[in-house]
Design a protein around this nucleic acid. Structure first.
Length: 317
DNA sequence: CGTATTTGACCTGCGC
DNA sequence: GCGCAGGTCAAATACG
């Protein structure tokens, strides 16, 4: 694995307001946008852009990515209705519905859910917010996990899923994660791992599972937004690379972890000096989008600019 | 010893 | 109402 084992990065984007809406890829998707990305390493760009796009303008996204012939494709869909947990981001769904994408080795797929999920934390209190009923002591029956009020509807935070060709399941993304569970996935020989951001106030979670159809593909689903900057401990530059505004939650409820996404992609895990790589790649990929954004006056709420610091465009290490 | 991971039990929601 | 599957908890264990 020379430069990056993530060459073949699947970037899957779809907006399923609840984790379950990913079936949007299927038939009842409200809309699906696809775009081709420049070849080099669409990962970063597609990822980050997509993230934001989901909260701003999907149509834009499409155009924005129509840059060059593709090596990757980005799927993004918006769905307004919430579904149930059953249809959630199962690998089966992702793969199944994006068959064509999967068929292309060099494509990335990414799926996100934000808009509807904008309600974000509204209910996140169910288990995470008020976990372990520590204070309430109302441990309920057995172990005392549940701590949710029935009234609540249980809406998930915005989710963002993407597939990555990688040998490692848990990709580094700049944040610190703690694994808190693992479950066998139906119809898949590979288990799904659950991670939670270790930062105290941060409730972001992510699930990682390997595609049963393509074992070399790892499907990562992020849920929630980081409300803190990247731990500088990891790669000193990580936090420094992005302006504060970018390291804070998006006012839209859109996933605000472009940085992590960025770190995520390519080779991050395969090469120690990813910093430089990330920088360069980022530069290559973001630039076009940024231009596009400017042209179309994409209301990125400052995210775009923040996301693509000038220095990046200048190929800053 | 502190922190992270593992793992079985439990809870929740949905379909039948 | 029951069973299934996903998601989470937390005690036990592993690791640095």
């Amino acid at each position: 694995m020379s430069d990056h084992g993530f060459r073949d990065f699947y970037y899957h984007a779809s907006a399923f307001n609840n984790d379950h809406d990913q079936q949007s890829f299927g038939g009842e998707t409200d809309s699906i946008y696809r775009a081709s990305l420049s070849s080099v390493d669409p990962s970063y760009m597609s990822f980050t852009d997509s993230l934001h796009s989901t909260s701003m303008d999907y149509g834009s996204l499409e155009k924005a990515f129509g840059l060059s012939p593709s090596s990757s494709e980005v799927f993004s869909s918006v769905e307004g209705s919430s579904r149930t947990m059953k249809q959630q981001v199962g690998v089966e769904d992702l793969v199944g519905n994006t068959g064509e994408v999967m068929g292309t080795p060099n494509s990335s797929i990414c799926s996100s859910s934000s808009e509807a999920g904008c309600e974000e934390d509204s209910d996140k209190t169910k288990k995470d917010g008020q976990p372990k009923g520590s204070e309430d002591g109302g441990e309920s029956s057995k172990k005392g996990k549940k701590a949710k009020t029935k009234g609540e509807k249980k809406q998930r935070e915005p989710r963002f899923a993407f597939m990555t060709k990688s040998e490692v399941d848990h990709l580094e993304d700049g944040y610190r994660w703690r694994k808190y569970g693992q479950k066998a996935v139906k119809n898949s020989p590979y288990p799904r791992s659950y991670y939670r951001c270790t930062t105290q106030k941060c409730t972001v979670k992510k699930r990682v599972e390997r595609s049963f159809q393509d074992p070399s593909t790892v499907i990562t689903t992020y849920e929630g937004q980081h409300n803190h900057p990247l731990p500088t401990t990891l790669r000193g530059s990580a936090a420094g690379l992005f302006p504060p505004s970018m390291l804070t939650p998006s006012p839209l409820g859109a996933p605000s972890f472009p940085h992590e996404l960025l770190m995520h992609m390519p080779n991050y895990h395969h090469q120690m000096n990813n910093q430089a790589v990330a920088g360069s790649m980022f530069a290559q990929n973001v630039s076009p989008f940024q231009q596009y954004a400017h042209q179309h006056q994409v209301p990125d709420y400052g995210l775009l600019q923040d996301m693509v610091p000038p220095k990046f465009l200048k190929h800053e290490p």
